[in-house]
């Protein structure tokens, strides 16, 4: 097993329909169990980089290796399945399915990831265990996702990303809408979980104050360039 969960090498990506704009990431790596904060302003290409890492868009050049697999070499279907197996995603606004229960939301990735599901065993019990570990009240799994507080939704989003212990967690500005107290609580929960399972964490934010909690802080402008390519 490799010690590097994520390795990006000489990545180049041209946005479709945007004449000449190109994102270049020469080198980025995240070690197993490492937490990395990626800082960047709006328009710096953070979201695009996350999509490239998740394999929902493909680079024009370069490699995105996750757990030793270059995802660009996978077929479209295999790439989606690989993402489900290897990556847990936490969105900016947690983005729970409003019409599903807490359990539906937590168990959703397992539907697309048979290995993760196999690792979990009893999925419903694991969802309850995670809820309990994240401080959610007993019996919350049967409650509609919209019927719980924002703080509880944060925890459900973490549980959804963590279930089945994927090697990499991608978090896209999950604390941007939270006050300082809530941010701290959220990060405590997240770090506790990633540390327990030795999971790598790549979190994107524009808030440098969060840096002290992470193993490493990198700035988007230090690792990536957005350039207007010569015609």
């Amino acid at each position: 097993m490799t010690d590097t969960t994520l390795q990006i090498t000489e990545l180049r990506y041209r946005w479709p329909g945007q004449a000449g704009f190109r994102l270049t990431v020469p080198d980025l790596s995240v070690a197993r169990g490492e937490s990395v904060l990626l800082l960047g302003e709006s328009g710096s290409g953070k979201s695009t980089l996350l999509s490239l890492i998740c394999g929902t868009i493909l680079p024009d050049q370069g490699r995105v290796n996750i757990a030793g697999t270059n995802i660009a070499t996978l077929s479209s279907g295999a790439r989606d399945k690989f993402r489900a197996e290897q990556i847990g995603v936490i969105f900016q606004q947690f983005n729970l399915l409003p019409f599903g229960t807490v359990a539906d939301n937590i168990l959703l990735p397992l539907h697309f990831a048979p290995m993760r599901r196999k690792r979990v065993g009893d999925a419903t019990a694991e969802a309850s265990r995670l809820c309990s570990a994240l401080g959610l009240p007993a019996g919350v799994t049967g409650v509609k996702a919209t019927a719980i507080s924002v703080g509880q939704q944060q925890r459900v989003a973490v549980a959804r990303a963590m279930i089945g212990q994927p090697p990499l967690i991608i978090a896209d500005e999950p604390t941007s809408a939270l006050d300082a107290n809530s941010q701290a609580v959220f990060l405590d929960l997240l770090f506790t979980q990633t540390a327990t399972h030795n999971t790598s964490l790549l979190m994107v934010s524009h808030d440098p104050r969060l840096g002290e909690r992470f193993d490493r802080v990198i700035r988007m402008e230090d690792i990536a360039q957005i350039e207007r390519a010569a015609a």
Binding site: C54, T56, S76, G77, D80, K81, R83, A84, E85, V89, F91, N95, L96, L97, L108, P109, H111, F112, A113, R160
Partner: peptide, 11 residues
């Protein structure tokens, strides 16, 4: 987008 992020294929 949530479904896609969780591993759902476009199909």
């Amino acid at each position: 987008a949530i479904f896609r992020a969780m591993g759902a294929r476009p199909f």
